[in-house]
Structures are given as C-alpha cells and as structure tokens.
C-alpha cells in the first residue's frame, strides 16, 4: 500500500494540501469579492474557462485584471506584450478599450470562423511569448485541446481566457479556473466551478457599480437573489416556492438575520 502511494505521489497523481500556496500565482483582479474568494485574485498564467452568455459584463469582469497584467509588464520590462482577441462574437470597439486604458497598439484581433483555426491561432499566440493574454470565444473544447493550450500558455508565460456559453457540455476540463457567470443588477453572480489549488466556495456576487456606474444599479443586499427572476412576472405564492431553489437567497437572508 505504502509503495503504491509513493508511486502515485511520484507520478504526480496525488495532490497534497500543503501545495496550495505554490501552485497558482495570482494577480489582483480589481474586484475585492473575487480576490477574496479566489485566494488573492486570478491566476497569472494558465487557462481560465468562463461560462457565460455574451453581453452581461464578462469582459468588464476581466478588464481590470488584464490592465493589471499589462501594467505589471510595463513596470518590469518597459514594454508590454499583446492582448489577442480570437473569434469575438461581434466587432470589438476601440473606444471601450481606450476607456479601459488598454493601448490599441497592443491589440491583435483574429477573426477566424473555423474553430480549428481559432484554436491553432490561440496556441501559436500563447506559445510565441509575445502575447500576455489571449481571449478566445469557442464553444466546443476537448480535454487534449485544453491541455495543449495550457502547455502553450506556460511556454509563453501567458493567460488564456475562454468564453463559452453556459450549460456547455461539461467535461472535466483541465483548466486552471472555471467560472460560471450570471447577470445581476449590480454586477455578476459568480459560481466557481473549478479552482486549481483551492477549496470550493459558495456563489458570490461581484459588485461592478464602482467601475461601471452607468451599467449597474447600486447593490442592494435585499435584492441579491433577484437578478434574472425579477424580470419574470411570477405570482407571489409561487415565488415563495421558488426561493429554496436558489441557494444564494437563503444564504443572503440568513446572513441578514
């Protein structure tokens, strides 16, 4: 038995809890809630999977983080590497990027239509060492593809963020971090589906009102659980029946009490 354990440990198949601190190097995400739940921030390199519908603030969630990466590079090397958008769902707007203080010279956009091409381009960009982050919109992913991206990201010291629609086929992908996003009036509700070197945590809400006052309402603790459901007209009696289904609401109320 002991021999077997040793062998497994040698093969790297056993993860021991004391490895937690040196596994993932993180950087400030710009949102205190996110930093708190993800042990200091988002990973410095690796593959991040984001399950979300488009247009609820998924890019806004990562903008401060990308900017932090960029500035860290500037501080260290006096020159920044590229940020790459691969197969974005619509035309990227330069004004938004300027607003986020991301210089346009550091952008590369690849408008490929075929998923295979997108993956190839992502791997090349990561591997090249001249891109610090690659944002990829891709629906289907296989385990070996993610592994290759991860390997490439390590080679080029870059981060790969993959945006997928929610409820995509849920394989156990070897990503560093997997998040599922849901829209809220004050920001985003985040479910951490997987976190390398971290314990599972409860769903939490990221307040984006400070950064984006025009797009969000001031967070109100009472309506944390609302979000999507508030837009659906549901009779009062049946609404009560809904409540236990949403775990966040129960927590919020218990916290208030």
């Amino acid at each position: 038995m002991n021999k077997m354990l040793k062998q497994l440990h040698h093969q790297g198949k056993i993860w021991s809890a004391d490895q937690i601190h040196n596994i993932v190097e993180t950087i400030d995400s710009g949102y205190p809630e996110l930093n708190k739940n993800l042990h200091g921030g988002l990973p410095h390199q690796g593959v991040i999977e984001v399950q979300t519908i488009n247009g609820i603030g998924e890019i806004r969630l990562f903008l401060p983080y990308l900017l932090n990466l960029l500035q860290a590079e500037l501080a260290q090397h006096h020159q920044a590497r590229q940020l790459v958008f691969i197969a974005p769902p619509a035309q990227v707007n330069a004004l938004m990027l300027l607003q986020a203080a991301i210089p346009l010279d550091n952008l590369l956009i690849i408008s490929s239509q075929k998923p295979q091409e997108s993956l190839w381009a992502a791997e090349q960009c990561l591997k090249s060492g001249c891109c610090f982050a690659v944002l990829l919109w891709q629906q289907l992913l296989a385990v070996h593809q993610v592994k290759r991206l991860k390997q490439a990201a390590t080679t080029g010291n870059a981060v790969q963020i993959i945006f997928r629609s929610p409820h995509s086929v849920d394989l156990a992908l070897p990503v560093s971090l997997s998040l599922a996003l849901e829209a809220q009036s004050s920001g985003l509700k985040i479910k951490v589906k997987k976190q390398q070197g971290g314990w599972p945590c409860k769903d939490f809400t990221v307040d984006m009102h400070k950064q984006w006052p025009n797009l969000t309402t001031i967070s109100d603790r009472n309506c944390i659980s609302d979000g999507v459901l508030s837009n659906v007209v549901v009779p009062l009696s049946s609404r009560q029946r809904f409540k236990p289904v949403v775990p966040g609401s129960v927590n919020a109320q218990s916290q208030l009490n």
């Binding site: 247009g55 974005p88 619509a90 707007n93 004004l95 938004m96 797009l215």
Partner: peptide
C-alpha cells in the same frame, strides 16, 4: 470618453 459598448454589431 462617452460610454461605449465593447461589441458593435456590424
């Protein structure tokens, strides 16, 4: 700068 969306539909 005015508030502008991140994605513009063609």
């Amino acid at each position: 700068l005015p508030l502008r969306p991140s994605f513009i539909l063609s």
